[in-house]
């Protein structure tokens, strides 16, 4: 199918007098990594909330493969093929790592398995195994998610989002608080995902942004300041003033 896989059109939300996201439009092409950057409080996470159905835009529409979603709820966006991770780790901390993944993968099973014991869910079990391996969590499968280290929890956070096999993956600062080595590894992982998903990323590490993004969107005070290839965006004087703090 042609056309953008994800499109945001004139999304806006205000909290009291604050225009957290102000008339933001952009389109994301299939199997690319698009990164949203911007200073703290620019409205990046709020933008993700609007797209994923966590917050309702006061204005604007989200399109997935050309189909409009207005005021859709998170579970409806999931059905539409969208999954997300969170800036603040949002896992099932009291449940085992494997169960975190299995819960996220169980939507892949046909409806008739809904009333069968989970041991019948072969497909979900396969996905769990794959993700445990891909994210280096095999040894931790039986641990409670709350017992993992910060870096491991951040990896699980991404893996849980991936477990429902989404078309579009929104990652909100996936490498936040990770060690340098973990960050490099995660960057490679995100890059490798694009063979089957389209990634929309929020990231602060500029080096990482420049190396893994196909497209960069710059936000500032709720508005889209610039958009383009990483090098173009970096050379943009307005971006340099607003974001890098020098012209």
């Amino acid at each position: 199918m042609s056309g953008p896989v994800l499109e945001a059109r004139e999304l806006s939300i205000r909290f009291g007098g604050l225009r957290a996201v102000d008339n933001v439009s952009f389109a994301v092409e299939r199997n690319l990594v698009t990164t949203v950057i911007g200073p703290n409080g620019a409205g990046k996470s709020t933008l993700f909330n609007l797209i994923s159905g966590l917050a309702r835009p006061q204005h604007g529409t989200v399109f997935i493969e050309g189909k409009p979603y207005r005021n859709a709820q998170p579970h409806q966006m999931q059905k539409a093929g969208l999954a997300r991770s969170f800036q603040i780790t949002n896992l099932f901390f009291d449940l085992p790592v494997a169960e975190n993944l299995r819960l996220a993968a169980q939507v892949l099973e046909p409806k008739r398995l809904w009333t069968m014991p989970v041991s019948a869910s072969r497909r979900a079990a396969e996905v769990v195994e794959q993700l445990l391996e891909r994210f280096g969590l095999q040894d931790k499968a039986g641990y409670l998610a709350g017992a993992l280290s910060h870096g491991e929890q951040r990896r699980l956070e991404i893996a849980v989002a991936l477990a429902c096999r989404p078309k579009i993956l929104l990652l909100d600062e996936p490498t936040q608080g990770m060690s340098h080595g973990d960050t490099e590894h995660t960057a490679g992982l995100i890059r490798s995902l694009t063979s089957d998903v389209t990634v929309l990323l929020i990231e602060h590490d500029i080096g990482l942004v420049m190396s893994i993004s196909d497209q960069v969107i710059v936000m500032h005070q709720g508005q889209k300041l610039a958009e383009g290839k990483p090098a173009e965006v970096r050379a943009n004087p307005a971006v340099q003033t607003a974001y890098f703090g020098h012209a």
Binding site: S52, G53, Q73, P74, H75, Q78, K79, A83, R84, N90, L91, F92, F93, D94, L95, L103, A104, Q106, V107, V160, A161, C164
Partner: peptide, 13 residues
């Protein structure tokens, strides 16, 4: 019980 806020993102109401 474990985390109600994440459940909708797994595709459930």
């Amino acid at each position: 019980k474990a985390n109600e806020r994440r459940v909708p993102f797994l595709g459930y109401h």
